[in-house]
Nucleic acid binder design. Structure first.
Lengths: 128, 128
DNA sequence: ACTGCATATACTATTGGGCGAATATGCCCT
DNA sequence: AGGGCATATTCGCCCAATAGTATATGCAGT
């Protein structure tokens, strides 16, 4: 995973927002859509793009695909995502995204949904 | 100067090498060409691209254009360039480039060339 | 004014990525 | 088998970026 790939990944706002979210843990596509307020196609395509670059990994849980940052820990990527928190927290929708993420995670946790299953590894029923 | 611009700048190997060189101080196009072993057109275009993104600045010294990192200090850019030293030193031609840069700088310094003038602010005669 | 050097721009072709709409796939449930 | 949900893929279009070639500009010395 060379540096060029990482920067190619980082040079798009949608992707930055997704990575910023995945930084805190895996998410399925439907939640990413909800948090970002974006259409499924777009989100899915960006995830595919990043997957091909080796930045994220996807795992299927029943009907859901759960994406996470790639296992291989990359210092450059990690540092940039950390740094972006401070540098671009307001400019990009980072803060807002994380707030929404918290909402979603809480709701999912409370309702023991299938997506929660995907995220936690247990089995449940019904996304949201 | 938002973060996307910076990453757009960083996602090309040529540009990374140029930025890595400029990090140590201004250089004129002819020296960049020599160090990178690249054609004039390419180097010039990349510099223009980065200039439009506000990452570098160019100043004319007689027939030579001297480029430097933009005045405005950007933490994100600075950190990345610093980090790349460690992370990609061998993979990209960074180390080799810096070695060549040292050669060029020494030669220029010894011969008191016009390019040296451009780089140091004094007047001289003859590039190389 | 002419020449030569350093650099920039214009032109064309090609590639890569983003987007929208439609369609396909995979999985679950009945 | 069929229906429904989540996600992925395909296609056609547009725009940004890269590359190569040729040409133009700016400046200095004669």
């Amino acid at each position: 995973m060379d540096v060029i790939r990482i920067y190619k990944c980082l040079c798009d706002e949608q992707r930055l927002r997704i990575l910023n979210l995945l930084r805190l843990g895996p998410l399925c596509v439907c939640h990413l859509m909800e948090i970002l307020g974006e259409e499924q196609v777009k989100v899915s395509k960006q995830l595919r793009y990043m997957k091909e670059l080796g930045i994220v990994e996807g795992e299927r849980w029943a009907q859901w695909m759960v994406y996470r940052l790639a296992e291989e820990d990359n210092p450059l990527l990690r540092e940039n995502l950390r740094c972006l928190q401070d540098v671009a927290g307001e400019r990009l929708a980072f803060g807002e995204d994380l707030r929404k993420r918290a909402e979603v995670m809480e709701r999912v946790g409370m309702e023991g949904s299938a997506c929660a299953a995907a995220l936690t590894g247990k089995t449940g029923a019904g996304c949201d």
